[in-house]
Amino acid sequence: MQPFTTHTGTALPLDRSDVDTDQIIPAEYLKRIERTGFGPFLFAEWRKDPGFVLNRPAHAGASILVAGPNFGSGSSREHAVWALEDAGFRAVIAPSLADIFRMNCTKVGLLPVRLPPDAVRRLMDAVTGDPTTRVTVDLEAKAVSAPGFHAAFDIDDFTRWRLLEGLDDIGLSLRHEEAITAFEAARPSFLPTATRSG
């Protein structure tokens, strides 16, 4: 995973609520068995509208997505995060994010940032008004800033540390291999297995 410490870039204002992962990447593009190459299909349907914010030249190269509440709802497809990452995004800022999407972000290294609704509104208006606005997302300081804008955000210490260091989650869990083995040895014998019938 790519570490995330601090990132400065321009932002894409996606002023919609309940943006589900079917919009972020429609199901027809989930058939790839590779982990890369999803960027061109990001918001594939909405993108067909020339007026869609992602198509506006002023927002080309944006690397921070600012969205409405309940971003990333619906399907668990990590492809949604891969598509955002592949299209150059490093952080998503919204008043609320769906649980599975947020979890997927933290596994990939796309920083999910929850800010109060009024702060998101002000940031949305600022980057809509001036698409060249430079926004900084600082994970060490747990703050988002832009000219005339500053907002602190919360993230649990463990996830923050993992993202700052870019640590492999599996490696971290395997530190507890002895505990896993001990747990397995104590599991009741009536529990089902896939291979045993009855």
């Binding site: 599975i100 979890m103 997927n104 596994k107 989650d169 599996i170 291999e177 896993i180 397995e184």
Partner: peptide, 17 residues
């Protein structure tokens, strides 16, 4: 429901964080 990184985690460790 989990994402693909977590699928890999469960395959490798039989646990979920």
């Amino acid at each position: 429901g989990i994402g693909t990184s977590e699928v890999e985690h469960v395959l490798a460790t039989q646990t979920l964080s």
